[in-house]
Design a protein around this nucleic acid. Structure first.
Lengths: 226, 226
DNA sequence: CCTACCGATCGGTAGG
DNA sequence: CCTACCGATCGGTAGG
């Protein structure tokens, strides 16, 4: 028997469809247990809040004993930060994928995306990230900000800034064309508020689909192009 | 010495400018200690969150010993509910005052408020309630919803519904005139999101005044009247 | 990753 | 409203 490839009594964890590079070699990644902890933590942090969730709850949700999460994470706070960083990395990846896909599509028609089309792609993807499947990570980031230490906060902020930066030229183009009125920075903050707030009320089983919500949002924010 | 009027060694707490009727006779209201607890609790719940704030912190902030808050409130949860109910009552009062004041003003010009003017008054007042002075109560209500028991939740919801109901005919009028586009219910939820989110980022000392923010919000949401 | 455990803190209460 | 206190729970760790 080849000892370099031990017998697998448990099914091998499937490789992630899109492999994101691990940034820090310090982080453990033995099997899927760490990922499972992140998933459970994100779900509980979202539904109960960070402070009201015990590390015992998280361990139990992942089928572990009370002390075991601390084998994977230094502290409860580090687990929270990891949830947020993981969520932001996925969101960034999804955002650039969505933009690339849309750009490719119109390229076949030998044209480029209009600013309005760009905004639609960004808004639609944002809804997916916020309230679509596997969407606990970003709401946790939005609503548990104050539970982070300053150091962790700046790490998460760096990713958040990258995510929001993509929106800026789009909104500026819409302002230049008269489709978006008012101070662009304030408008951007108000728009993100409108979108982010959906995490508070949107129920996936509801009448309104995310497509319909995207339509309403664009109708609400944008004027007719002059 | 007239015993019916005991000597006041401490200054008598000033009567509130606008006396709101106490709803429940069961609630104690001996002096200003209860109000002080509410104020401190609102501040700490907002900055640290409900679960991360201990009743000892609150007691200390009000200059009491650890067990004393429970003389005024049945439980920590009841204190949270009281903060939210107090906040919503004040917000409702302020909202109807603001509307009445604006209506009076235009009446002197022998006309009535336009739907657009109504929305401006509502938005401006909402910003005051959210991020103006003494504004901890409403953010606590918005962000600690999940910490309430179902019973308390329905009590707060009743007031919240009354507050939002005022907006509905205004938004419907704007939709009828073409100044607001898209599904009115979804638009209302998105608008409240945009406004409520300001509690997350607005700094009172910032460049943007609440008047400027109101302008931007109306420019963002509304079309030209056709 | 489990067992067994520690010190600290928490919400709440009895009695005054 | 204070004093003194209780039982429960919590984040985290040593040792394997």
């Amino acid at each position: 028997m080849d000892l370099t490839e031990p017998p697998t009594l448990e099914p091998v964890p499937p490789r992630r469809a899109r492999g994101r590079p691990r940034k820090s070699a310090q982080e453990r990644d033995d099997g899927n247990r760490r990922q499972e902890l992140l998933r459970v933590a994100a779900r509980l942090f979202r539904s109960q809040g960070f402070a009201a969730t015990s590390t015992r709850d998280i361990a139990a949700g992942a089928g572990m004993r009370s002390g075991s999460p601390f084998y994977h994470f230094e502290s409860k706070e580090a687990l929270l930060a990891a949830v947020m960083l993981e969520g932001m990395e996925r969101a960034l990846q999804r955002q650039s994928d969505a933009m690339a896909r849309a750009a490719e599509e119109v390229q076949r028609q030998s044209r480029v995306l209009s600013a309005r089309e760009c905004l639609r792609v960004l808004v639609r993807n944002h809804f997916d990230v916020l309230v679509g499947p596997e969407s606990d990570f970003i709401p946790v980031m939005l609503y548990e900000w104050r539970s982070l230490s300053p150091t962790q906060r700046s790490q998460v902020k760096a990713l958040k800034d990258r995510y929001e930066t993509v929106w800026v030229p789009v909104l500026e183009a819409l302002h230049a064309s008269g489709e978006l009125r008012g101070d662009v920075r304030l408008a951007r903050l108000l728009i993100f508020g409108a979108l982010n707030w959906t995490a508070q009320w949107y129920q996936p089983g509801e009448r309104a689909t995310l497509d319909a919500l995207t339509d309403t949002a664009l109708q609400l924010f944008l004027k007719e192009s002059a």
